[in-house]
Design a binder for these strands. Structure first.
Lengths: 663, 663
DNA sequence: TTGTCGGCCGTCTGCCGACAA
DNA sequence: TTGTCGGCAGACGGCCGACAA
């Protein structure tokens, strides 16, 4: 077993994570998962939470991963669950080699969170093990299989440098040097191949044994295999299936079952009983992680996120390489307000500069992105101080900065919603509070102020975070049927700490029998609590909203529907401050300000999900050996260069049915 | 869809069962299960409860079926659960074609049971659809596959009568008449075969298409296929895998998962909340059904069951044929007294006259067997009236017959237990109460007596049923910490109805929050209740027993451990009445009385699980076409006649791995 | 009547270098 | 440097009647 401990983040070394490498459920108990191999199969962007660390768990993202297999029932779970990582186990599906991790989480209450914020808990901020490129096993390569590689006609063509680096050396003095290789897969199963150096010109090939591997693993062209030489010289062998087959394919039946079995129901159960629960995380099933280190999550409140902001983000490319893309925030708002009000999960709608959008991912979470450093200057210049004056919005309170209401465009919303809107105010969105000149002296008021600063939780939803300092907390809490005002008050005072307590705690479960709906204490979850108690449904809220503020848009179902008139009007005023004119102009011409984008071919990528990927690449020492400048070009080239190769793509050694049966 | 309604029992026609034929979960939604085919695949002995009927559900048997896959946790469930059948759905596993039924049950309370007994509920006594031979589809055949059938070398040899009866006629004037057949499997998938009549001598063969079917269904020699011609002429095609592969094989992964998911936990949940629950019943996974019509179950109290009694019983033979076996009851007692005290599930230990014991089934449930009509006379002559006198056991009460204590032999018990026993009284067992001359005038006291007759529930456990008339119910209930004496009293009075209320009701669940352990009301469950409340553990009972009565044997942990001294001594006296001498003599020579057994080769059958079955048989119109007198001989013959055929048995078209990989 | 075998032929598997991208 | 192809040989699939149980 060669687990490289140096693949673990430096800060974590004080409390070395004791990973529990584990065989898959149906595998032999003696086999164990090689961490390096697991990560190599999981992909370059995969990271894992550290055992003992504090994390935020997003049921919404979890459900998103499992959505293909189980009904979308949220069980009244809060959008953010504050947890400690009890254990992390690495697994691989026995039948498909799909990698997944079993993460055991224990729900924490806000006491721990407060202590952590106050610095009373040191060094376990939930650092995740991000397998940085330096720590990846040095002797490894990953090759996307060609039609020839997967055809029954021949063997596997090994890239020269890969063979020289990873495989035992051959005796090149011989005419056709060859020997037998042995490689272990994730389950510890050994695979033997004949490695030969032959042909004119000479090349490395795997012949005997290769086709058995292909058919047993049901590999098709476009899938990738990776070889990895461990420090003890042992060879490891993993596979990474192509992204196209990921959804809807029957090969992950078992995994789906594992995800399926009471996914969120068991979580809800664990939260109400304050017991540990287990999450199965498939790093290749969904682009976004739904367990995020608390420290990483909290950082999003140190940055401004505003519509029109440029950012960078790492994404996995078609050939499973790590690439940095750039994009533009087009809107900020709840992804599914009815079910997950105030969730930060994928609350940013984005447009990509680059022409490739692997998973059609037009929504990202704030912690996933990297604010582009070249932009803020120009953005600051655009800050419409004059507009604010021009619109004549009253400054409500001098020392409490007010988020402005611009920045949300519903240009992606269906027309049906748009028609409900009124005079261009179709949607409700909020810019980050510290954006612009007016609030420049409030860049970091959080640390200074002992006074609750609700704007820190801007993304919690626009409603309560604005209202509380303006209106009467008691009134608002009563108006929404939140009976336990002392708890609410406790929450308010806790907001005086370094950071606001927006995560959902479960500390008072003793006071409430388990039969009650899951308790939520943060303002952002008030609406959810209403739903649970049945005192007010979101439909009702929406009705009030439509009636009073005519906010009938998709994101219009906000908590502010329950506000008294005063604050509510203030919110409406805020929205008028920044009409979306400037935004939409910028969005319609994304290349104007920052022409880093090549001639956009975004439209032609819609067909990618249908066509097979004949392109291939080889990764060696983190260096992409694939030739060609653009992925798109390479893809097209392979299509035009070998039009007849599609017949090979149909070959599947495991299905040798006769013509009769095929009919 | 051709569901033959005439396959359903006649009595049920007044309320025709609306079966819900259902595709397997992962199958196509349009396909539907053919009832005839389902039953043909399930086996000749399979029966199904009727929708709307009253049944007894045995968690113990359920757990037995699922035991291969899930932990044996009984969740404090009572041994017998009285239910109404809400729905019955037929399914077939998509990947394995395993048939199973989803039975939805609703727990009933004893009120309904009482009404039913009093005749106030008519005509829904839970008749089951027993597919009697007359109702089986007339045009069907089932053939166990030979090595040649499953080899890739050739096709499928169709028995002549089968082909003439089930397949469309060929034009025999042609030299080699042939045409194409189409048959639908359980999922509605069509399979096409070339049917040809050729060879010298002429024979029917399925050639093209056959091997694809074999490899797709992963059939091996020993498995059976069955063809069935529906009334509309459509051909159906099913498979029955050989019994050898049933346990431990990976092919029923999905089914196991379905069984696994909280098998008994969900039942316990449903009982405590009085809601319906769903049972997956695999008719081929276990020999005994665990959902029994109430009427059938209650009949066991009309018959005597005593040690030494001869009986007949239908069992499925090796080649899935329905055969009648005869045997002898060797003991009567709980199968697992610790977990299921008083359970009637397989409470009879038996010895088989016949040399074949397919599932090594040495325990049966009373409703499974048919009392042999030829035996009782001789048995009555053996009734040891003289012995009773000889032992000097006092007659406790003249008009209350006393069960005698003979009849249980522990010759199958491990020695470790035996050593704990004392002077030949190693075990505690009870003969049926109406056995012998002394009680011959009590043959049917149940209907006559308005007085509670505890002996009716002889199998409920020996303790309370003996004690109650002798001792003071209040005393005994207090001594075991049964706090709710009024409920206990209610139970006692309910025992005055036509039949004793031994089934577990759940009518009072409103009074008890769900968090309490499952409520049980019958005397037989007292010990279980103790365990749940923690006031007395079975270990304690055992300790008392060892101390007072020195009953440290396997079946010694009975309720009577808690009895006051008086009745307890009576029980000890009862045990002394019939030392197991006579019984063991009879058991050691099973052939003496009824020499219906051929020269027994029982020992040589131990190896059956290892060797492949090369034997085959063909069933046509319920007539077994297989030649050969004894199954054992046939098996041996095939081994000696074709020693080289074993290489064919190894062939598996789906695994074409190279020699390299095989190593 | 039917299970197994040898004969036979067509297809598939899989190793080789040629060729070209 | 390596993806694909034609050539080639051996393995396998699968249809046939012979033979015998």
């Amino acid at each position: 077993m060669a687990i490289d401990l140096n693949t673990i983040g430096d800060e974590a070394l004080e409390d070395p994570p004791t990973y529990s490498p584990s065989a898959s459920l149906s595998g032999s108990p003696s086999s164990s998962i090689c961490l390096e191999l697991w990560h190599a199969c999981a992909g370059p962007l995969t990271s894992l939470p550290r055992k003992g660390g504090l994390v935020v768990y997003f049921p919404q993202g979890h459900l998103e991963q499992a959505a293909n297999y189980c009904p979308k029932v949220a069980y009244n779970l809060p959008p953010h669950v504050f947890c400690r990582v009890v254990d992390v186990k690495l697994h691989a599906e026995a039948t498909t080699d799909e990698v997944y991790a079993q993460v055991s989480l224990f729900p924490e209450n806000e006491e721990v969170e407060k202590k952590f914020q106050a610095g009373q808990i040191e060094g376990d901020g939930g650092e995740e093990i991000d397998f940085s490129s330096k720590s990846i096993a040095p002797h490894m390569f990953c090759k996307t299989l060609t039609a020839s590689d997967t055809s029954t006609h021949g063997g596997f063509s090994v890239p020269r440098r890969a063979a020289e680096d990873c495989f035992p050396p051959l005796d090149y003095k011989q005419h056709r040097p060859s020997h037998e290789l042995t490689a272990k897969d994730l389950h510890g199963t050994e695979w033997r191949f004949r490695h030969i150096y032959r042909g004119q010109p000479r090349r490395h090939l795997l012949t005997t044994g290769w086709s058995a591997f292909v058919s047993k693993k049901k590999l098709v062209s476009g899938d990738a295999v990776l070889f990895l030489r461990a420090e003890n010289g042992e060879l490891r062998l993993g596979i990474r299936r192509s992204a196209q087959l990921k959804s809807g394919s029957p090969y992950s039946v078992l995994c789906s079952q594992r995800l399926n079995i009471g996914t969120l129901a068991s979580v809800a159960n664990a939260l109400s009983s304050r017991s540990a629960f287990h999450i199965y995380y498939n790093p290749r099933a969904s682009a976004s992680k739904f367990i995020i280190p608390y420290r990483k999550f909290i950082k999003i409140f140190d940055h401004s996120f505003y519509v029109g902001m440029r950012f960078k983000m790492r994404l996995e490319t078609e050939d499973a390489a790590d690439r940095r893309y750039t994009g533009l925030i087009t809107a900020i708002g709840d992804m599914d307000h009815l079910t997950w009000p105030g969730s930060k999960w994928r609350c940013l709608s984005v447009n990509w500069d680059d022409d490739v959008d692997p998973t059609k991912q037009n929504r990202v979470s704030p912690w996933e992105i990297d604010p582009s450093s070249s932009v803020p200057a120009s953005r600051n210049l655009l800050a419409p101080g004059s507009k604010r004056t021009k619109l004549g919005v009253p400054s409500i309170k001098a020392d409490v900065p007010v988020p402005d209401g611009s920045g949300f465009s519903d240009f992606k919303e269906p027309l049906g919603f748009r028609k409900k809107g009124l005079q261009g105010q179709e949607t409700l969105g909020f810019r980050a509070p510290y954006d612009g000149i007016d609030v420049s002296n409030h860049q970091k008021p959080v640390i200074r102020g002992g006074i609750p600063d609700p704007h820190m939780s801007w993304a919690t939803g626009t409603g309560n975070s604005v209202i509380i300092p303006l209106g009467n907390p008691d009134t608002s809490s009563k108006s929404i049927g939140f009976g336990e005002s002392d708890q609410f008050g406790a929450l308010m005072s806790s907001a005086g700490s370094r950071r606001p307590t927006f995560l959902q705690g479960y500390c008072n479960s003793q006071l409430h029998p388990a039969k009650q709906p899951v308790q939520v204490f943060s303002p952002s979850s008030v609406l959810m609590f209403q739903q649970a108690t049945g005192q007010a449904s979101c439909t009702n809220s929406k009705y009030i909203m439509d009636k009073n503020s005519r906010e009938g848009t998709y994101f219009g179902c906000f908590e502010n529907a329950n506000l008294p008139d005063g604050p509510h009007n203030a919110v409406e005023d805020l929205k008028r401050m920044h009409p979306p004119v400037q935004l939409s102009r910028e969005l319609n011409h994304p290349g104007t300000a920052h022409a880093t984008v090549p001639a956009s071919k975004g439209d032609c990528w819609d067909g990618l999900g249908v066509l097979p990927t004949a392109k291939s690449g080889c990764r060696l020492f983190g260096f992409l050996l694939t030739k060609g400048a653009s992925v798109a070009n390479e893809f097209n080239a392979s299509l035009t260069a070998s039009p007849s190769s599609t017949e090979d793509l149909d070959l599947d050694a495991s299905s040798q049915c006769t013509g009769l049966e095929r009919q």
